[in-house]
Design a protein around this nucleic acid. Structure first.
Lengths: 190, 190, 190, 190
DNA sequence: GATGAATGAGACTTCATTCAT
DNA sequence: AATGAATGAAGTCTCATTCAT
């Protein structure tokens, strides 16, 4: 019985944390913010979570966990491949809607200062234009209209940046090799 | 005549900043860190950069600028399409090597806590397995071997996450629609 | 239950502030000064007072409040006019004794550098001498002996300076007109 | 010749200082403010004035000096007493107009926070009301109308505050005695 | 002499964490 | 177990003064 009480409180804290970290990122979120949002005293949070960092990790993991739960259900369902892929996409985006603030929060600084969006769009558009000539006909990307092509390129570049954002210097070289071969395989003609 | 503002000094500060922000992210980097690294008094930094935020933005923009410079040169060269694409890839990754610390730094929190890498790999692998059956033969992703498939999926998911990390709540819905159609076009059979 | 905000502590801080601001003025007083004097950690002051400015205002207001309290009591007592005036004078000076450091602190800069005293005395004496001739007999100021006359003049000049120290430029002209007629009425013969 | 150049610069600095200290008080005025306003480099100011404090003292003294100059001229003129008093008043206020910003600046903190004006008015009015009864007829203050009475009282209180603002603790007691007898002589019936 | 960049001490304030109640 | 006041280290930025040019 007492346990249930505790779990409720723990959950309240976690939800408040997820939303606060999501809105403001790790460093801009104060323990007091979370305390106020969850209606629990600052000191009491430490009964449930060792420190701010643990609370942050727990927040992110909680979201991943939620995602895994649904992902597993879908993957192991009896639906057809096509349906399962559709399901994953659909549910993936549903989760993303929830997870969205947290993902944004993780990049709070970069986003606040609008460091990426414009540059990514500009670079994608510029590269996309290369394919606007007849000689490019045999490149895979020419099967898309101009706008889709730029959008797809933006996805690639974003993916590359994100990937490398979590690569250690030590592994940088290898990762570049991998990525390069992925690019040849996909964006260059056979 | 008095001492003149020294472009070399400005550059020293900027480089120290790029590397410090890269190693530790925005909030974990102190002005003193940058002062020590650049061998310049803390107060003097403010002669060249109004405040910490301006210095951070300048750091990121400096890297983008460098990238643009080379990008433009390549795009407007007389080389063949194929060569230009290869050049872009090659130079892009060269720049990425330099930019790497900064990109990492932007996600310093997430990276330090290893919040993504493992999860991304796990999810990608799980989804990739769907295609390990004969019935999946007509899906585009089956033309890759198992490992490449997972890697490509990881790229997609990373790109999606990165994209959404800078999408405002207001535009979330539209962006999802776009992304969804991109996925159908590319990952589902015609 | 947790520790409660402690009115005694709040008072300790306020008293330390009144005395520190009194000794050194607003800008020369540091929050650390007040912390040390009150035996309370610097950070804790902020539990009771939002910032330095609020603490300063509170200090001044606290003294005014005290003064009002006694003033009201006297004004509404049943004593005779004469007694009440005497009381006000008496109590007024009692309060002034307490308020003294703070009043001094407000003019800390001017006082520290002894910018007024000598000059005021000199000017007052010089003007007072005008009346040291038989022809001045019909001026109100001649009913005082030489010393008192100078002292009264000093009071007038001080009052004028103080008054104008809080007059905005916009209202300067009007205030001068008022003051001028007050002077005619009081210092010139009917 | 070189001397004349210097004196011009010295004067430029002084004027800029008077006006800057006047607008913002001692601590809120930076040497750079004065440098910019006078069109002279910060470092150069130190050629003419040892440090900020000396410059401040010089500013105040410059204004006093100007006042003395005119005061002396008037005092030693051949005009009648009445005319000389009128002249002093007139010229005094002329000087005050110039001196005004500096006087204000000295109390910059108190003025910015509006610590005095309201309180002085309130107190004066309250005390003035004492005399609004027939029994008060024999008090000197009753020869004024209600408004003038309050204004005169405000002058007295201001003068007292200003006077005591430059009294050391050691001399506080004596000064109070003096002031008290001045009050009896003037505000109480014979 | 003049200039203004360089210096670095020091100010205010925040906030994760502790601990008395 | 819960509370929230207390703590104090640490961060950003300002600015009087110095000194290389």
């Amino acid at each position: 019985m007492a346990r249930k009480q505790d779990e409720k409180k723990r959950t309240k804290i976690l939800n408040a944390a997820i939303s606060a970290f999501g809105d403001q990122g790790f460093t801009n979120t104060t323990m007091k913010d979370i305390a106020v949002a969850s209606g629990i005293a600052p000191g009491s949070i430490y009964t449930y979570y060792k420190d701010k960092e643990v609370l942050f990790i727990s927040s992110v993991n909680a979201v991943w966990k939620k995602f895994y739960l649904q992902l597993d259900r879908i993957l192991h369902s009896n639906a057809s491949i096509s349906n399962r892929i559709q399901d994953i996409t659909e549910y993936g985006f549903d989760i993303l809607k929830e997870l969205h603030p947290l993902v944004r929060g993780m990049y709070q600084e970069a986003n606040r200062l609008n460091l990426f969006r414009k540059n990514l769009v500009r670079v994608s558009n510029q590269i996309a234009e290369i394919f606007d000539v007849p000689e490019a006909a045999h490149y895979p990307l020419t099967k898309y209209d101009s706008k889709s092509r730029a959008y797809l390129l933006k996805l690639w570049i974003s993916g590359i940046l994100f990937t490398f954002s979590s690569v250690s210097s030590a592994r940088l070289k290898d990762e570049i090799t991998n990525m390069r071969s992925l690019i040849s395989q996909n964006l260059l003609p056979d």
